Amino acid sequence: MQRLDATDNAKALVRQLAETHGDLMFYQAGGCCEGTQPQCFEKGGFFPRTNDVCIGTVEGYEFWVDKDLFEYWKHAHFTLDVTDGFGAGGFSLETPLGKTFQVHYRVFAEEELEKLPPVKRNIP
């Protein structure tokens, strides 16, 4: 059982971005400007805050979630997807390609919650 999956389209875009930019990372904040749109950066281009949570990887690249957003969504499974268009944030690496990453959520069943591995927190 895992907290994060990605669609085939999202995985293909991640591979394309990695060919251009090298190692990547994802960050999903809960702020007002970018909403909860996941952002893709070059690894080291964004630094998670203390206690932010890594919920898994997409094509080997870490997917971090804001600590407060995680508390709200800790009972949900995330599926990274991609759509055509310009998202709310605009800082993400897919933006110049006319693409936007998005996340679909579903609430875990009780038996799934019991099988989840612990999350990784950013603790300096």
Rank of each mutant, 00 (worst) to 15 (best):
Q39K: 14
V119H: 03
E34F: 09
P38S: 05
V14G: 08
M1I: 15
G60M: 15
F41C: 00
F26S: 00
H21I: 04
R3P: 01
G31M: 05
F26R: 00
Y72G: 11
V119L: 01
E19R: 07
G87S: 07
A10Q: 04
Q16L: 09
E112S: 14
H75D: 13
P124K: 15
P48N: 05
L13K: 00
H21Q: 12
L17G: 01
A29L: 06
T83Y: 13
E42I: 04
F70R: 02
T100M: 02
Q102W: 11
E34N: 11
D68I: 15
W73E: 10
D84K: 08
I55Y: 00
G35I: 06
E62S: 13
P118V: 03
K11M: 12
A29K: 02
K115R: 08
G35T: 02
L4M: 11
D23M: 15
A10C: 03
W73Y: 14
K43H: 14
G98N: 12
L113F: 04
L4A: 02
F108M: 05
G90R: 08
F63Q: 04
R106Y: 14
P38K: 06
D81F: 09
E112D: 13
D8W: 01
P118C: 09
G31I: 05
T79L: 03
A88N: 06
E34D: 13
G45Y: 00
T36H: 08
F46A: 07
A6M: 11
A6V: 13
A6P: 10
Q102I: 04
G98Y: 08
T7C: 04
F78M: 06
R15H: 11
E111H: 13
T83H: 12
H75M: 12
E110W: 09
A10K: 08
W73K: 13
E59I: 06
D5Q: 11
E114K: 15
D23E: 13
F26H: 01
Y72F: 15
D23V: 15
T95Q: 06
E71D: 08
A29T: 04
K99R: 10
R49D: 06
A109D: 13
P118H: 07
